Simulated scan of single mutants.
Amino acid sequence: MFFVSWGSKGEVAEIGPAGDRHCDRCNQDGPFTKMVAYRVRHIYWLFRWVTDRTPFLLCGRCGSQYLADQGDHDAKQERDAIPFWDRRGWTIGAGAIGSVIALGSIAAAADSAADSGYVQAPHVGDIYEVDLAKMMDKPEARVMRSAMRITAVKGDSVEVAVANLYYDDWRGVDRDITSGKAAQADYYAPGHASLPVANLKRMRDDGVVYDIHR
């Protein structure tokens, strides 16, 4: 189940001195401070934005609060007094997501470049994630995600062993590779097939091969 963490909280920020004034509550003259009360709304505390800004004056002697009048109201000062993280947190959240997307794109490009090199110079032990359905005239299922392992490299051809099981999505094969299960000999069918090295590139370009592990 997926939960979205969201909410809001009230905060107060100091704008600056407002000079000496008379406080009707403590009936004394003394220093006042310009303040702003605001509400921070958030999603996962990463995306934050400010609403409900209310400027007020604070008595330095008794702490009494008074709503700021027109002469004490300065929108820019109030905005600048609010910490950047509260005021512009949404841009950091958006930037973080953008960075993740950019890093993902860079990683995908690097992975693609590596796979391109692997099919041109295969090594014994390379494991290819393949869709067996695209290798058969009459497949048992529409999608048959499986593994194919290079067992020998002989000049312009390779010998491969094909796993004796398949999945309906890529996660099963990835799990077997990560756990080391796909590195075991009994994971594959007994017979080996011979393929020209040029066919590996064609299989990758045609989407038969969708990832390579070395």
Rank of each mutant, 00 (worst) to 15 (best):
I127C: 03
R88L: 10
D206W: 06
Y166D: 10
T33Q: 12
K134V: 11
P83C: 12
R61V: 04
W49R: 02
T51A: 04
W6M: 07
A152V: 03
C26W: 14
V12C: 15
A96I: 14
L132V: 09
I177P: 08
L67H: 14
M135C: 07
A193G: 05
D24W: 10
D126Q: 07
A163M: 12
A183T: 06
E14P: 03
I150P: 11
A114W: 09
V173T: 13
H73Q: 06
I92Y: 10
N164Q: 08
W49A: 01
A193K: 10
I101D: 08
R61W: 01
R79W: 13
G125Q: 10
P122L: 02
G7E: 07
M148Y: 01
D176W: 05
N164S: 03
K154V: 01
S194V: 13
P31R: 06
G180P: 11
E14I: 02
H192E: 10
S64Y: 02
R21Y: 03
T54F: 07
W85A: 11
S5N: 05
N164L: 03
G155I: 00
G95W: 02
D111H: 05
V160Q: 03
V119Y: 00
N27D: 13
Y166P: 15
W6F: 15
A94Q: 06
W90M: 14
A68W: 08
E129A: 09
V36H: 02
V153K: 00
H192A: 04
Y166M: 05
D169K: 05
W6D: 02
A189N: 13
W45L: 08
V197G: 03
V143R: 06
C59S: 10
R88S: 09
A147E: 14
S112L: 12
P31L: 10
G155T: 04
S116V: 08
R25F: 11
A102M: 03
D111Q: 12
I106H: 15
P122N: 12
A109W: 13
D131K: 06
I127D: 02
E159K: 00
A114N: 12
P55Y: 06
S157T: 04
R214Y: 12
G180N: 11
K181W: 05
